[in-house]
C-alpha cells in the first residue's frame, strides 16, 4: 500500500475550483517535485496533505490515517506529515533548540532529556549544532530554514512537505538548504516538494508532477519528461523557467 494515497480530490475556494480531481500515489522513499504556474493548484495540493486546506471531495490516506472530505483526526495525520514553509515560520520567541523541542515536548509528551537529545540530533543533521541557543533573528535565512527542517524532522514524520522552501532565500543561501534536502532524500525520506528549482527537481527527484488548471497534467520521471514533454503546456512551462 502506498504511503500517501490521494483519490478523487476536489477543492474549491468559493467559486474557484482549485483542485479538479487529483489522484496520486506516493511510495515510501519517493522524492516528488510538484511544478506548475502560480494558481495551478500545486501549493493547495501540498497543503491538503497535512490538513492545512480542507478537502471538499475525495479521500486522502497517509500511512493508514484517512481523511475524508476534511473529516478525520487532523492531529494524528499531522504527526506523520512534516512541513517546511517558504517563510520558515520559526517561532521567534524560542531559540533554535526550543523550536525543535516544542512539538516533541507538548504533542508527544517526551521528557526534557529526550527532546533535548532529539533537538541536538536534528540540528546536527542540518549542520547547525552550534546554533542551539540562537534565536531565529540571529540566524541567516538559510540557517532559519534549516532549523525549520530540523523542527519538522523532530516529530519523525513519514513524509515531508516542502512548500517553495528556497523561494524566500537570497541566491547564495539556496544551496545550503537544498543540500540538506538532498541528504534527506539520500537517507530515504519521502519528500513532496513544490519547487521552482528545476535542476534540483531533475537531479534529486524520482518523479515530477506538472500541475495545470487544477489537474495533474503530466507526470513521470523528471529526466525523461523534462527533456521530452508530451504536452504543449509543459513544453511552454519548461521553456519559460529553464
Amino acid at each position: 500500500m502506498s504511503l500517501v494515497s490521494i483519490s478523487g480530490l476536489h477543492k474549491h475556494f468559493g467559486t474557484n475550483h482549485v483542485l479538479k480531481g487529483i489522484d496520486l500515489q506516493v511510495e515510501q522513499g519517493d522524492v516528488i517535485a510538484l511544478i506548475g504556474r502560480s494558481g495551478s493548484g500545486k501549493s493547495t495540493l501540498l497543503r491538503t496533505i497535512n490538513g492545512l486546506e480542507s478537502i471538499d471531495e475525495g479521500e486522502l490516506v497517509v500511512d493508514g490515517t484517512a481523511l475524508h472530505h476534511g473529516e478525520g483526526d487532523l492531529r494524528a495525520l499531522r504527526q506523520k506529515v512534516g512541513m517546511v514553509f517558504q517563510q520558515f515560520n520559526l517561532f521567534p520567541h524560542l531559540t533554535a533548540g526550543q523550536n525543535v523541542m516544542l512539538a516533541p515536548t507538548v504533542v508527544k509528551k517526551l521528557s526534557k532529556k529526550e527532546t533535548e537529545d532529539i533537538a541536538k540530533e536534528m540540528l546536527l543533521k542540518v549542520g547547525l549544532s552550534d546554533k542551539f541557543h540562537a534565536f531565529p533573528d540571529q540566524l541567516s535565512g538559510g540557517q532559519q530554514q534549516r532549523v525549520a527542517i530540523a523542527r519538522a524532522l523532530a516529530m519523525r514524520p513519514k513524509v515531508m512537505l516542502c512548500d517553495e522552501i528556497t523561494s524566500a532565500l537570497d541566491p547564495e543561501l539556496v544551496n545550503e538548504v537544498l543540500a540538506v534536502v538532498q541528504q534527506l532524500a539520500a537517507e530515504g525520506m519521502t519528500l513532496i516538494m513544490v519547487t521552482h528549482e528545476m535542476r534540483f527537481a531533475r537531479d534529486v527527484g524520482n518523479k515530477l508532477i506538472f500541475m495545470h488548471h487544477g489537474r495533474i497534467h503530466e507526470s513521470g520521471d523528471p529526466r525523461i519528461i523534462l527533456a521530452d514533454p508530451q504536452t504543449p503546456e509543459l513544453a511552454n512551462f519548461t521553456r519559460a523557467v529553464m
Binding site: 499531522r78 512534516g82 514553509f85 517561532f91 521567534p92 516544542l102 507538548v106 504533542v107 523542527r151 516529530m155
Partner: peptide, 27 residues
Amino acid sequence: VPRGQWEASASLALGFTQQMRHVILPQ
C-alpha cells in the same frame, strides 16, 4: 501574530490550546 505561526504550529500537530499557550500568546 502572523498566520504562518498558526500554520507552522498546526503542522507540528499542536492543538488549539497548545498553539495559544506555547506559540501565539507569548508573541
